[in-house]
Simulated scan of single mutants.
Amino acid sequence: MPKVVVFDEVGGPEVLRVVDEPIAEPGAGEVRVRIEAFAVNPLDQMVRAGQSPRPIQLPHARLGAEGTGVVDALGAGVTGPAVGDPVILAAIPDFEARGAYAEYTTLAADRVVPRPDGMDPVDAAALWVAYFTAYGALVERSGMRPGDHVLITAASGGVGRAAIQIANQIGAVPLAVTRSAAKEPDLLAAGAAAVIATDREDVGEATRRHTGGTGADIVLDAVMGPGLAELSLAAKLGGTLATIGWLDPRPASFPANPSLTIHRFMGFADMVNPVITRRVAAFLAAGVRTGVLRPTVDRVFGLDDIVEAHRYLEKGTATGKIVVRVQPT
């Protein structure tokens, strides 16, 4: 029988277990996807540890916010995807009945998008959430334009690297913020126009130096926390601050730049909007086709090694996405 990862109680990585379950038939308007690979995300860690943004029903809860595979079966009334189509899961499944941590999953037919032609399943598994988040915050919300200077915190992470590439695709100027100067060569190779390392320089001063004294047009922040007020001063007057994460769990300080337009972007809310989803899918497919968008995969695990994958995630040392390659039965 097909394998699926479940957990009956919240806690550390060891609560995850791989079990066999009968394959489910897709309901009306649904497709069944044979999963080839999925990504391990911080949201999965939060849900597993009991820090989910919404209640999770136990026991037998599931994980998995993104993945890729091949359409295996169609439910009644499905007229879009066809059996055999390579697809990417385009919206977070629920954690009670389905998820990407499995050999098969079912979901609504309008919640999958075509996988870019020729894209390897491991790379495709690392694409959707990070690039959707970066695109949504920078383009859909902040209106990023060619020539804009974009300051990107947590630039070594999956969303940070996606933001660097998307800024380059638009023609903007990505300025990468990292805690360690040792990461500068890697971030420059990833496409950053400049790297600001907080262990050697002040973010605001460095940003003004790289922008002719005006400050960043857009600040994309995945950290939040008490440093948000100081970070806001790196933006120009009338600039934009888009927050996308909470890597610092401490209460965020109020931005000290009163002229900013502030967006709190939550990508999963937009992923259920089919108009936005189609727009993002088209943008990403074009970027993959031209070679501008290239997901960075830090490490690949097997499905039976899911506990080790979560332990690796918790170390916080990954410099790209963590992907699990599934070997279907």
Rank of each mutant, 00 (worst) to 15 (best):
V195E: 01
P93G: 05
R98I: 03
V177K: 02
R250M: 04
P86S: 09
T317A: 14
Q327W: 05
V70E: 05
E205I: 07
H263T: 03
P114C: 08
D199N: 10
V219I: 13
P2F: 12
G143W: 11
L43C: 09
P81K: 14
V6I: 15
R209W: 00
G267W: 11
R17H: 12
Q45W: 11
A108D: 04
A269C: 09
V324M: 05
G67E: 05
P55L: 12
A197T: 04
V31K: 11
A154E: 01
Y312V: 07
A194L: 06
I35A: 04
A109I: 04
F254I: 11
G67V: 07
R98E: 12
R250F: 02
Q45D: 15
Q169K: 13
F283K: 12
A234I: 04
P81Y: 12
V159K: 03
V6P: 09
Y104R: 04
D199S: 06
A134R: 03
G157P: 01
T214V: 14
A154K: 00
V19K: 12
T106Y: 03
P258C: 05
G69D: 02
N273R: 14
I170Q: 08
A163K: 00
T68I: 09
D298P: 03
R209V: 00
G213S: 08
V78E: 02
S180Q: 14
Q45G: 15
D117T: 14
L175W: 09
A216T: 07
D110N: 15
R62Y: 04
G191E: 00
K236P: 09
S232W: 10
G171Q: 10
E184R: 15
Y104M: 02
M119E: 11
R111I: 11
K236R: 15
H60Q: 14
A76H: 12
D248H: 08
A182H: 09
E103S: 10
P116N: 05
R17K: 15
I166A: 07
N257T: 04
K183D: 05
S253R: 02
G316Y: 04
R62M: 09
Y101M: 04
E66R: 09
F95A: 08
Y135R: 00
T296R: 13
P146H: 06
L175N: 08
L228Q: 02
I244A: 13
G215K: 05
A90Q: 05
R54C: 00
A73C: 13
M224P: 00
F7L: 14
I262G: 01
R278D: 15
A181L: 07
R48V: 02
A125W: 03
G238C: 10
